[in-house]
Amino acid sequence: MDISIHVIRRCKQKEREAFDILLSSYEEQLYRLCFHYTRNHENSMDIMQEVFIRVFRAIDSFDESRPFWPWLKRIAVNSCLNYKRDEKHLYTALEDLDMDKPDLINVIASHHSLEEEIIVRDTGRIIEESILALPEPYRMVITLRYLENMSYQEIASYLDLPLGTVKSTLCRARNILRKQCQALGLMEV
């Protein structure tokens, strides 16, 4: 499903209707990406607006010989990464932590009161919150791997990271999540 060059040329001419044609078929996928990353509707809408504005400004530099969706997705990924999360957000402080420090897992685990978890036992929600607590680039790697089903190589090219870094990042992110689930007794095999 790639958009016609004709529409893109009209967008380059800054023709108002052309942007509706161009974006309407992609905004669902874009929103999914933003929401998977932020897990928050308001933040996702903020990022979506940023994506629209960036598309408007950058469309001139779009190379028509290349597919449109990866270009657009890259804009969305960058907008997500640049998005400043609400200061009041519970997990913002975690961004300052170094992932290699062993106490991080404990900090993340402490966000869940054990009592509450025993009642809810909602693995999905725990994982969701744990992902939110992960700093960058762990969260985006998880989003690209699990929402977009990207290979290591694709993730590396999207985030401008070496292949080895993507590999170790995904590995560490999953280990954090795994150990946390284990601590909450959700990993009994």
Binding site: R16, F19, D20, L23, S24, E27, E28, Y31, R32, F35, H36, H41, M45, M48, Q49, F52, I53, F56, T123, G124, I127, E128, I142, R145, Y146, R174, L177, R178, C181, M187, V189
Partner: peptide, 27 residues
Amino acid sequence: ILDWDLHHQDAIEVPYEQLAQLRKSTF
């Protein structure tokens, strides 16, 4: 198990109307 959970997270509800409005007003 973790991989399965990550693949099967809650479905995302897409606010189609709101997105279309946002698109129109932004452009």
